[in-house]
Design a protein around this nucleic acid. Structure first.
Lengths: 291, 291
DNA sequence: AAATTAGCATCAGATTAAATTATGAAGCAA
DNA sequence: TTGCTTCATAATTTAATCTGATGCTAATTT
């Protein structure tokens, strides 16, 4: 029956889609910059190949059949996607997208962004701040700064830095509650973050035998730091994220007792992918900034 | 800079996608049934056209760049869609898909299906039973039987039939409750359907001045008829949907008082689409069955 | 009814795109 | 080094696609 069993050229599909959308072969030819004759042949060949009527001919007019309509609609979507993907790819040269947690973006990256732009004006560096494990290919992300235990399957991970955690609060809050030694924390509001076990671990390191008082769990580290800045309580601050606020005096660490964090910062990238020049420079810069 | 600003041939994209997925030009060529050389050229031309590096070359090996990776992933999805659409279209010849409400499918269509198949063995008629207003193109539906006021914008609607509604219940239930005149319904459980106002309208037609008692609203007409068959109460039955159960004696209409329904049955199709022979025959059959 | 018009089909030939073959170079492994 | 694999490039061939002329059909106008 069908000799040439279906695997029509994409060109034929493209032409057909236009014909269906424009409602005629002449206007489709117009849109595509080819003649009516060419459109007619492509459509005819496609119909023969699929052994399906895509248009009903009646003299000077053609009308899509339901089958043709459905095919055309699906092709239209796919073609649009392809064109969008292509034009994005064409635009994305010299662009590097870095994914990281909102807290890292706000507290580590943002203060350094100005310096990066000065050092590398030709690189279009973008940050995608999100809390989920990013899908590099699908989301157009080139690399990620992750906070975790690493490594991750299928991904190349380079350890950037470890850090310590210690209680932080505002100077005002420390004085108000009277934080002189770890045991005074019993009187304070403890804010719990992404890794709630850390408070217990810190109390152990501090040699404090009292029960660890409970407190609100706000979830997002950026939100917790904001709460601390608002004099809401004491949180365990990650050394890499509180540098700035300590330097400016907005926050203080009332005790000099630090717990080594169980998680570290990593620079993560898909394994099979080749790094661009821009990417390599971003990578070097990130590593340098973490030292 | 870029002479041939982007509008690469779909073939080039197809070839590139394969190369990215297979991780090499030779194996891509293999997959596509062409030579390595052809792949190399397509990819090279594509890169030149977009002015983007899609692969990093190092002697005998190529590695996708992040940009290439992202492009390839998106193309892969689109190409898969296109191929699926094509092979579905090829398969869907002589097939007609009819959308209707589950209640209509169960009570009107199902009893007639055998007859249709006998009369038109060469037509592959499919029924899509759903309660939402179907999107013909996207869902691959050729026509719909709708119950409503019509017409609908962009759609060609032919009125099939009007109908009447009247209370129905099982003979057992009628006797148990003692349904002799409309006022006896006060003692019964009234089941409310998609158009709850109808009970009130029917009471008015019946000349019954009592307050209409409340009752459960089950929503789906098919569910309501099932509840009636289970001796759960009295519902307003649409004449077109209860024919069978009345004929078989499973249901009775205790009073011969009928309300003309505000809604009618319509055969609905997209306007711009050309009906196939199979579709025309289905259409004729549906109309005939509604008389 | 005849003429006109718009739009599609079809054919032979021209043009362009794509693929091939042959060859060279770059990396990698023994 | 010597193979071995794989990609790049160039010249050539092949295949796909397009064109232009012409004929056809159905609808519309005269």
């Amino acid at each position: 029956m069908s000799l040439n069993h279906y695997k029509p050229s994409l060109r034929a599909l493209e032409v057909f889609e236009s014909a269906a959308r424009m409602g005629g072969f002449t206007s489709a030819g117009n849109e595509l910059g080819i003649t009516q004759s060419a459109v007619s042949r492509q459509v005819g060949d496609l119909e023969a190949m699929l052994d399906v009527k895509l248009f009903q001919r009646r003299g000077a007019h053609v009308t899509v059949t339901p089958t043709g309509m459905r095919l055309a609609e699906r092709l239209a979507v796919a073609l649009k996607d392809m064109r969008a993907a292509v034009s994005e790819a064409a635009r994305s040269d010299g662009m590097v997208t870095l994914s990281m947690l909102p807290s890292v973006a706000a507290k580590w990256f943002a203060p350094r962004l100005g310096r990066f732009v000065t050092a590398h004006p030709q690189i279009d560096l973008r940050v995608s701040a999100s809390r989920h494990l990013v899908d590099f290919g699908a989301e157009g992300v080139d690399a990620a700064i992750r906070y975790g235990r690493g490594p991750w399957p299928g991904l190349a991970a380079q350890k950037l830095a470890t850090e310590t955690v210690s209680p932080v609060c505002t100077p005002f809050y420390a004085e108000q509650v009277g934080l002189n030694e770890p045991a005074d924390l019993i009187q304070a509001t403890l804010l719990y973050g992404d890794i709630p076990e850390d408070w217990e671990a810190w109390f152990a390191v501090a040699g404090c035998t009292e029960n660890v008082p409970p407190g609100p769990r706000l979830g997002d580290d950026a939100a917790i730091l904001q709460a601390v800045l608002d004099h809401q309580g004491v949180a365990l601050g990650r050394s890499r994220l509180i540098e700035d606020d300590l330097a400016s005096g907005k926050l203080v660490t009332p005790f000099d007792i630090r717990l080594s964090a169980s998680h570290a910062y990593w620079l993560v990238q898909p394994e099979i992918v080749e790094k661009s020049d821009a990417m390599l420079r971003v990578e070097d810069w990130v590593k340098a900034e973490f030292d």
